[in-house]
Design a protein around this nucleic acid. Sequence first.
DNA 1: GCTATTATTCTTGTCGACAATTTGTCAACT
DNA 2: AGTTGACAAATTGTCGACAAGAATAATAGC
Lengths: 244, 244
Amino acid sequence: MTRETKVTEFTKPKSMVDQIYRSISTAITTGALEPGRRLVEQELQKDFGVSRAPIREAIRLLEADGMVVVDAYKKKYVRYLTREDLLDNIPVLAMLESLAARLAVANITPQKILELQNLNSEIEEAFAAGDFVHCAELNFSFHRSFLQLAGNKTLHRAIRSIVKSTLWMWLTSQYYRNHSIIPSSLEEHNGILEAFRAQDTRLVERKVREHNENVLERFLSQTKFNEQGICQFTPPQNLSTSGG
Amino acid sequence: MTRETKVTEFTKPKSMVDQIYRSISTAITTGALEPGRRLVEQELQKDFGVSRAPIREAIRLLEADGMVVVDAYKKKYVRYLTREDLLDNIPVLAMLESLAARLAVANITPQKILELQNLNSEIEEAFAAGDFVHCAELNFSFHRSFLQLAGNKTLHRAIRSIVKSTLWMWLTSQYYRNHSIIPSSLEEHNGILEAFRAQDTRLVERKVREHNENVLERFLSQTKFNEQGICQFTPPQNLSTSGG
DNA sequence: GCTATTATTCTTGTCGACAATTTGTCAACT
DNA sequence: AGTTGACAAATTGTCGACAAGAATAATAGC
């Protein structure tokens, strides 16, 4: 009788913790919450209008992801990245993505290659439009496509974990914002697709590995680090001269 | 009101959540909590003598690790493994560990090689003594040594993540319990150490990759799966014929 | 005897409150 | 002036209780 006719209620497919997790996660990848930013439960509680329990659980998930770090006094911060972090990423991501690409060769279709070409064009458009966050997302989609084609859950999980823990999306968007290196990436993407078209496994593997190495080395060479080796991008909107 | 006379309490005031996390994590790797086993907050609450809040946070961490899975009705279970999970692990672990070994070549010392030889002997002893859990731990230590020598945090994190999410320690101990294949592993371990002694990077990389592939394929060929493809080891103490 | 519906129980999700810890401030003392 | 200690504010950790939803038991109807 009293069946609540939840007709217009689409916004309830996920648990509270999941929503908070996603929200903070997105805030970090988009740069709304910059690396090093303190996370205080009371503030988040007010933002989301819930009690602290689900906030705390969501933060635990982010902590496990490596997107949030905890200091000796239990205070939580958005992870900040060091030069060492980026250096460590290079061989691992290059190797995992090239493995994904190798496995994908067996499953890719001409149709899929066309889709990826279109995706590549979309990246170019987003870059031209100055939407660097979307650009990073599309770029990630491009890479993720090989993961999906590879059909290996362990691999998928491993790469996803690295992407999250090293704030990959944030890094990419910041990088796009500050440097005009999209053309190089797009060119390399096309090279990869060509190798796929030729069904040349060895070539695919090499191209993907080199692409990843190139991207990461470009990151490193063009990124500023402070005296503690922490990655320093220009904040999104920095009106005051946060001098100090 | 200071009812807690914690006199002999040197046990690093680790946080409650951390203690619970470790405790459950250990229970899973040792097989005390077998795959598929339901985790009920109220039971754990009684076991640890705390409220549900820290229990829930610990379970969130285990969930993020992939050691615990959640069904559509929010019920929590220890992760169970499928044939597909094991298959997916093979190329990824083989590749990551061989990368670790390659990076380790530059940092290894004759001293360290001797230590690893001793460790190998310890594994043999633990196996002979029938302590399969310890055996799995020591074996993991052997592999982890290369990780530490590699000095790459991203790589360390990636492998650790796979080890946790696929209940690697549990799998290994169960495998040791059921099959007498330690000799093959020990032999391969020695082969790897020889390659290290020769400083032959290519050989190290190949030996480690092959060792991982061998181990995982032995797992697969000698492991039972039920009709749903779920890994079925004989439970630690199985007196009744859990028929079906 | 069997099915449909209603209670009851079990389990998880969320909340507000209190305790413990850390940080910040300020006054007293050497 | 600098240091130290105590007090206050801020923040996190933990608790018990209630609400919501699903699984199970019980009952009514045929």
